[in-house]
Amino acid sequence: MNIGVLVKPVPDPEQYNTITIDPQTKRLNREGVPSIVNPADKCAIEEALRLKEKFGGKVVVFGMAPPDGREKLLECLAMGADEAVLVSDRAFGGADTLATSYTLVKALEKKAAEGGSFDLILAGNESADGATGHVPAQVGEQIGYNHLSGIVKIESGSESEPSTLTVFQKYENGKNEFTIKLPAVIGVSRDINKPRYTSAMGVIKAKKKPFDIYDTINLEHDKERIGLAGSPTKAGAIFSPDTRRKSEELSGSPEEIAEELVKRIKATGAVIVSGGGCHER
C-alpha cells in the first residue's frame, strides 16, 4: 500500500500564549516559538506506518513549507517514513487552503508519476495554527479521490491489501461509520492513535532516505492557481481577542470560600438541586 502523508510544520501549540501582535506594525510576533510537526499530522504518519507494517508498500511525506521545513520532514523520516518531498518556493507563499491543496495535488501527482501511484493519502484533520480542516477535503476533491475528514478509526481488515476501508468519523452525536473506496484522502483526528516515539536508530537512517525538493521550476503548475494569486480568500487585519475579566479574588478557608461561592453561584441564575440528586442532567 503506497501512502502519501501531508504534513505541516507549525509553531509549537504549547507556546501559543506567547504569540503577540506588534502594536505598531500589526504583524504577528512569534519570535522564540519553535516549529514542530503538526500534532495531528504525526497521527497521520503513525496510521500510515501501521498500514505499511501490515500490507507493505511505502510511506511518503509531503510538506509545503519554507526551506527550513526540511528539518521537520527529516523528523518524519526519522519517525519511520520512507521518503520525503519538500514543496518549497517563495511563489507558493501566501496561499489559502485552496491554493495550498492545489499545490500539494501537483506534488502528489508528480511523485506518483515518478514512483508509483498512491492508494491512500492521509493528513492530520487540521493544523494547530490555522486549523481550517480544509486541506484533506480540498486535496481529495482536486485530485479526484474519495475523501473524508474527522476520522478517529480506520479498519483495514486483516487479510490482503484492501480496496475499501471502513472508517469512523466523529460527529456531533457520536460516530458515523463509512466505507470508503481507495484511492482516497482521509483526514485523521488526533484521537485516532498515539504516535510512536522516534528512536535513535530512526534518526541515524533519516538522512539516507530519498528527499526531493519541488519548486516552481521542477513542479508543473498553473501559476494563476498558486500562492496569493491562486487564493480566493484574502487576509485582512489581525487582532487579539480581549477575553479579560475583572478577576475578583475570593480568599479564606475552603469552607469560607464555599459559603461565599454558593451566594455568587445563586446570583448567576444557576439552579441548585437540593440533595445533589440531579442525575438526569
Binding site: E71, E75, A78, Y197, T198, G202, V203
Partner: peptide
C-alpha cells in the same frame, strides 16, 4: 544535525 534531531526525539 543528527545530534540535534536525536535530542528533539529524546526530549519528546
Amino acid at each position: 544535525e543528527d545530534q540535534d534531531m536525536l535530542k528533539t526525539a529524546f526530549r519528546e
